[in-house]
Design a binder for these strands. Structure first.
Length: 606
DNA sequence: GCCGTTTTCGGCCCGACTGTTTTCAGTCG
């Protein structure tokens, strides 16, 4: 977790995010108190496990299933039970006793760990959390820190830089496309050096996570030290944070931190594996290795028994996994969601790829539907030309429904009929081209789900639609029960409604999305033959991967759509595909991998 | 404090880099 205040205070209704902060704070406190190292590690693992949980921990508690979560055993389960019953945990209070609350705020500053945070609070007399960062910044500016024992001029500067970095982190992580662009420029630069043999992204970027913190790159190099020397000459570097013979950390003028690791080509496969993570994936891979008497590192694999410590090196990652008796695991799957077990049984999914996508069912055109939402920017013509260049077999114009507050029900019907006539006319005037390029154009609509679950268009208007998407665009704060009822009511209110658009409503870095009872939504989709969207817009990526995996395991079909509001957004499809891959999706799980003739009956089109 | 299809006890990942040190502790990934 970054940029958040770690939580010492507890209550009966703690969310997963708050619990993660609580457990990280507990681990930090245990480190100060020099508790058993492995007990500390256990709390850190519990925090990591909660981060990855798709269900609320409180719900698991209500169902008596706390210990089904990895890294939650009898001990922590008992503490959580006390927490959810009484809002307090006696044992946690003891762990925190005697520690200043301010130190847990300072921990959010990069470069400051538990020991340093504690020491600074003690030596500078910082106790309260609300102004801790401010007080620390002032002490650093007043050059007080360099006079403290164990600190110096450099560490004082580090603290100031860290506080600046904290403010940047608080503004949110980078969206995936931006991270890809910035890293590509640096990849191009690194490839210009004659020592460079190969450059690859590492970490969350290589796993194609929705948001990225720092950028990590790995270089296979004939001379790692020279590669690092070449890197720090990159003209977009604002500051070199650390530089050694194998790695360097730098900050770019854009404010983003980049970590680069260089290694000889003979060990490049091991380096890729090691720094791609995720952390939990690697921990479990190492446990598996250990069972076989092997030890993994970024240099390769060695026999634990081998006193000479000879390391079996791997130039390629595939052989690294094979050596452990596993299929190569695609980076998008390395999130400790059962991929290691699946790889051992040769049962990894055959992931969906961009090339499998045969059409886009959620596009906004510039036809003015007099909606309260954003209109599309591009014309019919521009969009079909782009669809043709992507080799699509079908697209659907799914503009927003007309605003209900500004139109009578009769006006809405007329508007939708007018829109149908407009598209019919456009389709027929481009008939030759569409036929030649085998592109089917559908007239759909993205209909608002009103707060009571009614639709923003009257029943009559469906006559002018081939099918429809429904989405929530308002009243995000309903209770889970009310929201679930609302969505199910809307989804099942007409047979032409086929897809639930951006199902969680999340906007990355901006809002969390609303609460839904997912098992109920999945059941509804199965029973009523409805589909969930994987919205490929980079700040949505919605469904998130965890729910994709659950939906697939229940047999619910999905549709990856770009929700394009401009012709250039059609290329965002790849981000939806990455997200689908992270949710273990195969082509058979995604309805728009079907050729038109097979999709047609699924959408109920004759 | 967690975990186990050889274990219910005895393991638990480890190397790079930095700063302030005279040989190492703290942080990070």
């Amino acid at each position: 977790m970054i940029g958040f205040q770690l939580e010492m205070k507890t209550n009966k209704n703690m969310t997963n995010q708050e619990l993660v902060q609580l457990f990280e704070a507990l681990a930090a406190a245990l480190k100060i108190k020099k508790a058993d190292l492995f007990r500390t590690l256990a709390y850190e693992r519990a925090a990591a496990s909660i981060i990855h949980s798709e269900v609320e921990i409180k719900e698991l508690w209500q169902q008596g299933k706390l210990t089904t979560l990895p890294a939650i055993g009898a001990g922590i389960a008992q503490h959580l039970d006390e927490l959810f019953r009484t809002g307090k945990v006696k044992h946690f209070k003891e762990i925190f006793s005697g520690l200043p609350e301010a130190m847990f705020v300072l921990l959010a500053i990069p470069g400051i760990g538990p020991k340093t945070a504690y020491k600074l609070c003690q030596l500078l007399g910082i106790r309260k959390s609300h102004n801790a960062v401010k007080k620390l910044a002032k002490a650093a500016q007043d050059q007080e820190i360099r006079r403290l024992e164990g600190f110096g001029k450099e560490s004082e500067q580090d603290i100031l830089r860290g506080i600046k970095e904290l403010n940047r982190l608080n503004t949110g992580r980078m969206l995936l496309p931006k991270a890809l662009i910035i890293s590509q420029e640096l990849v191009d630069y690194l490839q210009k050096d004659k020592n460079t043999l190969k450059v690859e992204s590492l970490g969350s970027l290589r796993r194609r996570c929705a948001t990225i913190g720092d950028l990590d790159l790995g270089v296979a190099s004939k001379n790692p030290a020279k590669t690092i020397a070449w890197l720090v000459k990159y003209k977009k570097i604002k500051q070199v944070l650390a530089q050694g013979s194998k790695k360097a950390s730098v900050i770019l003028f854009s404010g983003h931190q980049v970590d680069v690791r260089a290694q000889s080509p003979a060990s490049f496969g091991a380096l890729l594996q090691y720094f791609t993570g995720s952390k939990l994936h690697n921990i479990n891979l190492r446990l598996l290795a250990k069972e076989k008497g092997l030890s993994l590192s970024e240099y390769g694999i060695k026999m634990v028994q081998d006193l000479e410590g000879k390391v079996q090196r791997f130039s390629n990652e595939q052989r690294f996994y094979n050596f452990l008796g596993l299929e190569w695991i695609p980076p998008v799957l390395r999130e400790n969601q059962g991929e290691i077990q699946a790889a051992a049984k040769q049962q990894l999914p055959q992931l969906v790829n961009l090339g499998d996508i045969k059409g886009d069912l959620h596009l906004h055109s510039d036809f003015n539907t007099e909606t309260s939402h954003d209109l599309g920017q591009s014309s019919f013509k521009a969009i079909i030309e782009q669809a043709i260049s992507l080799n699509y077999q079908y697209i659907a114009f799914s503009d927003h429904s007309p605003s209900v507050s500004r139109h009578s029900s009769q006006e809405v019907v007329e508007m939708i009929k007018k829109r149908k006539d407009y598209f019919e006319q456009k389709i027929s005037s481009n008939e030759k081209l569409l036929k030649k390029r085998k592109l089917k154009v559908l007239v759909s609509l993205e209909i608002d789900i009103l707060s009571d679950g009614k639709l923003a268009i009257p029943e009559k208007a469906f006559a002018w639609l081939d099918f429809a998407i429904v989405s929530v665009h308002s009243s995000f704060r309903l209770s889970r029960t009310a929201m679930t009822k609302r969505v199910i009511k809307a989804l099942t209110s007409h047979p032409k409604i086929k897809i639930l658009g951006h199902p969680t409503g999340r906007i990355l870095n901006q809002r969390q999305g609303y609460q839904l009872d997912w098992p109920e939504i999945f059941d509804c989709c199965l029973k009523e033959k409805k589909f969930l969207e994987i919205n490929a817009f980079p700040d949505r990526l919605d469904l998130p991967e965890g729910l994709i995996k659950q939906a697939i395991s229940r047999g619910v079909g999905l549709s990856i759509n770009t929700d394009s509001h401009d012709v250039k957004n059609l290329s965002n499809m790849i981000y939806g595909v990455y997200t689908a891959q992270r949710g273990w999706a195969e082509p058979k799980d995604i309805i728009n991998t079907l050729p038109w003739e097979q999709l047609k009956p699924i959408l109920g089109i004759k």
